[in-house]
Amino acid sequence: MTVTPVRDLRRILPRTYNHRREVLSEIATVVSQHQHLQPVLERFVFNDGTARTLAGLTGTIKVFYEGKHYNIPVSLWLKESYPRTAPICYVKPTWEMLIVTGRHVDSSGEILMPYLDEWRHTQCDLHSLIQVMKAVFSEVPPLRMRLYPEDFFNDGTARTLAGLTGTIKVFYEGKHYNIPVSLWLKESYPRTAPICYVKPTWEMLIVTGRHVDSSGEILMPYLDEWRHTQCDLHSLIQVMKAVFSEVPPLRMRLYPEDSGSAYQKRSVEEISHVTLDREDDLPFSEHNETVC
C-alpha cells in the first residue's frame, strides 16, 4: 500500500468523488492530528469483481487497555459518495496477530459499530469516527497476538528459536504464486517435527481445510508422522509445495460490495483461489522476520 501525501492527493484524487473539497479537508485534519495515520490512494476491489480507485487512511490508532497503550492497525476507505456515506473500515492485523471477532469486528476484520450504521454526514466525520474507535477498542481490543501450540508455550514462557521465514513457490492452475510461511524448530529438532505456519499479510485470508487450520498452522501427515531418520526440512518444503499446489492455503481478502452491504461469507468451494495477486517471482511480503 502506497502512502500518498496530502499535497499530492489534492492533485490526483479522482474526479469521480462528488465532494472533493470535503474529502480533502477531512483527510488533512486527521493527518494533522493523528501522526500514525497516512492518506492512501489505492485500487479497491469489491465482491462483484469491480474495482475503484479510492482514497483512504491507513496506519495505527492508539488505544489504552488495562493500563497499557496498544497500536491497532486500521484502514479506512472512502467511497466516491463520501461524506454522504460512511467509510468502509477494517482492522488489518500483521501476521503475528489474530482478529478477535465480536460485536464490533467480524471475521474478515471489518469494523462494525453504530456510529457507522447510523452515519449522518452533517453530524459525523473521520476525526470523530477515530475517537469512537479508540473508545470502543479500549474496552475490547479487536486483535490479539497469535498463540502458538499448547505443548510449546502452555507454561507462558518464551524461547528463542531458530527457524525459517519467507515464501515458497507453488504452481497452481498454470501460474506461480509465493506463499509466505514460517517454520520454527524446537530445541529437540530434528527428533521432533517443526512447527509450521502460513503467515498471511493483512491483505490475505487463510483458507482453512485439511492442511491449514484457522490460526494458520500447517497440518499434514508428513509432520504428524515425523521420523528424524527419514524426514528433513528440504523434504518438508517439497511436500508443502506439492500440497499447496493442489489447494492454496491463502486468498486475497474480499472487500464489501460497492453498495456498502456487509461482507458476504462464502464457502471454500465458492472462492476462486487464483485471486492471489502475485504471478511473478517476488514474495508477497518483503519483510522477513527472523525472531520468534
Rank of each mutant, 00 (worst) to 15 (best):
E118W: 08
R84G: 08
G102F: 11
Y65H: 14
P39W: 01
I99M: 12
E80K: 04
Q38Y: 12
P93H: 11
S25H: 14
L116T: 03
E26Q: 14
L112D: 10
S81C: 07
H34Q: 09
P39Q: 04
A28M: 08
L54Y: 05
P93I: 10
P83A: 05
K62N: 15
Y65N: 15
T94C: 04
V100K: 11
V63N: 02
V74Q: 05
Y65F: 14
E96Q: 12
P83Q: 12
T85Y: 10
P73N: 05
P93Q: 10
Q38R: 12
G49K: 04
Y70D: 07
P73M: 02
P83R: 06
T50P: 01
L78P: 00
S75M: 04
Q35C: 02
A86D: 03
R21P: 04
R43S: 08
R84Q: 15
T29W: 13
P39M: 08
L116Y: 00
G56L: 07
W119N: 05
M97C: 04
H104R: 11
Y90H: 14
T101P: 09
R52H: 12
V91D: 08
S107V: 12
T29S: 15
E66V: 11
P39D: 03
H19C: 05
M97S: 09
K79F: 07
L37V: 07
H19T: 08
H19F: 08
V23G: 09
T101C: 13
Y115D: 06
V74G: 00
I61M: 02
A28Q: 13
T16E: 13
S108V: 01
I88Y: 04
T53N: 15
V91Q: 00
A55E: 06
K68S: 10
M97V: 05
P14I: 03
G102N: 13
P87N: 00
P73E: 07
R15D: 13
L116A: 06
R103S: 13
Y82H: 02
R43T: 09
R52T: 06
L116S: 04
L37R: 02
E26M: 08
S108D: 07
R52G: 04
V23A: 02
R84D: 15
V74E: 00
E110V: 11
M97A: 10
V23Y: 00
T85N: 15
T16H: 03
P87I: 03
L78N: 04
E80L: 02
T53V: 15
T58H: 08
V100P: 02
M97Q: 14
L41R: 03
S108E: 07
D117H: 15
I27F: 02
A55D: 06
V74S: 05
R20Q: 13
M97P: 05
D106V: 04
